[in-house]
Design a protein around this nucleic acid. Structure first.
Lengths: 152, 152
DNA sequence: TATTGTTATACTCTATAACTATA
DNA sequence: TATAGTTATAGAGTATAACAATA
């Protein structure tokens, strides 16, 4: 086991964004390795989870929840549809819109992937106790909200 | 001021990577806006800071500190050199290597940019007190280290 | 032979403009 | 006229292979 203790980047460690970027890169790499066997990546796993959590989810609503632009969601949904994990059906109320739902296969893949993601998550936060971890998640949400405010 | 309270992504809020990604996206957007007037972006500001903190920094060492691949650093340094902020001189000890240092102009730009980055940082962490903020930074470092370990 | 830095290249993520079909 | 979804495209960020100069 090797822990790098080089303090040469100390001047940057003072900024939250620097640590955030490095922690995120670490987690993203590990998460994508975790999801690859399931044919998923971070963003498509997120999409699949949200589709599983909502009845007849609108594509526009999903893009909003994922905070991605609609054109980028199209590619992700094409991927999930080709893999047989989701279905898109025209909304009865508005024939422009699509309602997205999991297929039986999608439900199975999501359950399996979720187990591995939970393992990944435990691995990444092994050194942090439950209370601190909850505080960490709460603070990250505060940072996220801070950026969506006007400079008030 | 608007705070989004839509709990529709609750199933994903359980995973650290999800919150980390969202917080990082928020910070990166704000930081890049902060740095644009200085002709810098997150990665080039980081490079400039490290060059300023080390005498005759080797290009290979800088890539390692920034955790980026050497080919990607070439582009960043070209950018900083064209802007007149850094100088590359051949190392006397090893004529393959370059030693990077700030120009007088680079020193000035770095000082000005750093002030704005500190403002950005205070803005992003306004809702978090000093003690919690220190804990946040420490936990992010733990997460980063966790990923660089073998699965032990 | 190995290492420093470079070139060329490719893949992912993100963002915008312009289009289509419906409303 | 406006909205839901799409197509095409472009810009970042990141990664690898192959090369030149030097060790």
């Amino acid at each position: 086991m090797t822990i790098v203790k080089d303090p040469s980047d100390a001047p940057l460690r003072a900024y939250l964004g620097y640590g955030l970027k490095r922690a995120f890169n670490t987690i993203q790499t590990d998460l994508n390795e975790t999801l690859r066997p399931h044919g998923l990546r971070m963003i498509s796993f997120s999409a699949l989870s949200l589709i599983g959590a909502h009845e007849r989810l609108r594509q526009s609503k999903l893009a909003e929840l994922l905070t991605i632009e609609p054109p980028n969601l199209v590619v992700i949904l094409d991927e999930l549809e080709r893999a047989g994990l989701i279905e898109k059906t025209r909304a009865m109320a508005d024939r422009r819109a699509y309602e997205i739902s999991l297929t039986a296969e999608g439900t199975k893949v999501l359950a399996r992937a979720r187990k591995d993601v939970e393992g990944h998550d435990r691995r990444m936060t092994r050194a942090i106790n439950a209370e601190d971890r909850a505080a960490l998640v709460r603070m990250l949400e505060q940072v996220e909200r801070q950026g969506s405010r006007e400079h008030d």
